[in-house]
Simulated assay, not measured.
Amino acid sequence: MEKQSPKVKSADRVLDIFELFTGEKESYNLTEISKALHMPSSSAYQILQNMLSRGYLETDSTGKQFRLGNKIFEIRVQHRQSTNLTSEFYQIAGKIVDDLNEGVQLGVRSEDKVVYIAEKHVSQPFRLNSNLGSVLPLHASASGKILLSRLPDEELQALYPKKKLQTYTSNTISTFDALKAEIEKVRQDEIAYNMGESIEGVQCIAGPVYDMEGNVVAAVSISIPVIRVTDEIWENIHYWIRRACREITNKVYRQN
């Protein structure tokens, strides 16, 4: 007779909650969670509070709707740092920083946000330094627009069911129609821009990293304060973005 592995009930319940978020809903309230998992509300509440305090869950402004927190993405970031993707990124990012002395980032998609899993800092006195695992909304970032560019229109619409989008600066795209028009341009050019849409005074250019099937798996971006933008720098940034994306794609995903 095969011996069964011992099970810890509370651990099972935590995993059940995580797996609940692989469904079609982004957030659940206490009643929905306890009902879906056939768990007493009192037990569910205690587990949710523990997960909340550790950063694995977060709530909306009402405190009643639970969704996945950034902690789970931070763990994912640490794991990805050991992969070939980030290794190849750091190889080319070092060359970019040596030439431009501007910050370089590598981002991947997580639902409606871009998560930055690698970055190369610069010595400039005024620079954009984000923490690994930090996130930005897809529609308000150059990397995010790249990651949106290969989604079919139906999936794009599902991500933004409301016509009005959240704005972060006066330059942020504020409507779905405007976003869709910009995504169409990104699809054609294979380059995306953030013209002060997430942070005032900072511009960004991004390009795509493709896998074997031609899916966009990551985005490489270069950020620069607008006060340092010149025609020559702008041209060089375009050159490095295209070169970096091509080299990472070929070395990580298309080796013979």
Rank of each mutant, 00 (worst) to 15 (best):
S5Q: 13
K7N: 10
D12S: 15
I17L: 03
L20H: 02
T22S: 12
E24A: 11
E26A: 12
Y28T: 00
L30M: 12
M39S: 07
S42W: 05
S42V: 12
S42Q: 13
Q49C: 06
S53N: 13
S53V: 03
G55S: 05
Y56A: 08
T62Y: 02
K64L: 12
K64D: 08
I72N: 03
F73E: 15
E74S: 09
E74Q: 10
Q78C: 07
Q78F: 14
S82D: 14
E88G: 01
Y90P: 02
A93P: 02
I96Y: 02
N101A: 10
V104E: 06
D112Q: 11
D112Y: 04
I117E: 03
A118V: 06
L128A: 10
G133E: 05
S134W: 04
L136H: 12
L138D: 04
A140Q: 00
S141W: 06
L147M: 06
R150G: 09
L151S: 06
D153P: 03
E154S: 13
E155L: 14
L156D: 03
Q157R: 14
Y160M: 02
Y160R: 00
K162D: 15
K162P: 01
K163N: 15
K164P: 03
S170K: 13
S174H: 12
F176G: 00
D177F: 09
E182A: 12
R187S: 06
Q188F: 10
D189V: 07
A192H: 00
M195H: 06
I199C: 05
Q203E: 09
P208Y: 08
M212D: 15
A218W: 00
A219L: 02
I224T: 14
V229H: 02
V229R: 13
W234V: 00
W234A: 14
E235N: 11
H238F: 06
R242M: 07
R246T: 11
R246W: 08
N256P: 13
